[in-house]
Design a protein around this nucleic acid. Structure first.
Lengths: 132, 132
DNA sequence: TGGTAGATGTAATAACATTACGATCCTTCG
DNA sequence: CGAAGGATCGTAATGTTATTACATCTACCA
């Protein structure tokens, strides 16, 4: 696992932009944001994101085609992560559940499925927006 | 919930194409397949897919941007569905897990998150491909 | 008859992601 | 030192996925 000081300039810029972003950001949103810092092409963003995801510092939200900074970047031990995404305000809640992880890994083992990555995304309306 | 005989012509064509398809299909693959039947534009496919998903006859695989016919289209009761997707052969295994469903719904209830839809996708290599 | 709701056809465009190629930088080791 | 190799970067072009906008059609029924 790489540490913060191992990040390249582009990776740092992308991670900073994403960390400051309120909610999930698309690669192109990040690109627009980073033009002021000299970014010109989507690939610059995608390459940085790939590495950041590999390092566990960023998550990809498949159902949104967007990205979020990991909420627990120092908790290197976190296994499976799940997301609750509010369709109204866009806020994302990241959490883990031991039981869910155990069950899914159990299924994989039973079926001899060599598990590489698991995506869990819940879509709905958060408490805050429901209260509005 | 609509029944089979409620489907329109386009919906039927798309569902048939997807059912015959081996594994997940992208909307554009389906479009190419259906040009012989008079399809001309992506929207014809997307509109049909939207309805079929609404009826529970088709699932969208978020991590692949593709679609599969539901493996249990007559089991109207199935709640949360999970997928195991083989990155080698593309085969998709659809299954349910009561415990996982209960845990995730529990999290939602605890956090007053009004849950609309849940995506669970496991990526990896299936038993068959591992054995090869 | 005329209104309305759902489905359709078509074109244009938006949004997301990758391939290809070459240049650059950095480390390692003869 | 300086060549070799690897990772990163810049840029352009292209490929893939999805939506907006607008017109038409069809079935149903008040």
């Amino acid at each position: 696992m790489a540490h913060l000081h191992d990040l390249t300039k582009n990776q740092t810029l992308v991670l900073d932009a994403l960390t400051k972003w309120d909610g999930p950001a698309s690669a192109y949103s990040l690109l627009d944001q980073l033009r002021a810092q000299g970014f010109r092409a989507p690939l610059q963003v995608y390459r940085a994101l790939d590495k950041l995801i590999e390092y566990g510092l960023v998550h990809r939200l498949e159902s949104l085609n967007s990205f979020v900074a990991c909420a627990h970047p120092h908790d290197h031990a976190h296994g499976l992560v799940a997301f609750a995404i509010c369709d109204t305000c866009g806020q994302v809640d990241e959490f883990s559940d031991e039981t869910v992880e155990r069950r899914l890994k159990g299924w994989a083992k039973e079926h001899s499925f060599r598990l590489a990555k698991t995506t869990i995304e819940m879509r709905g309306i958060c408490a805050n927006c429901t209260a509005q």
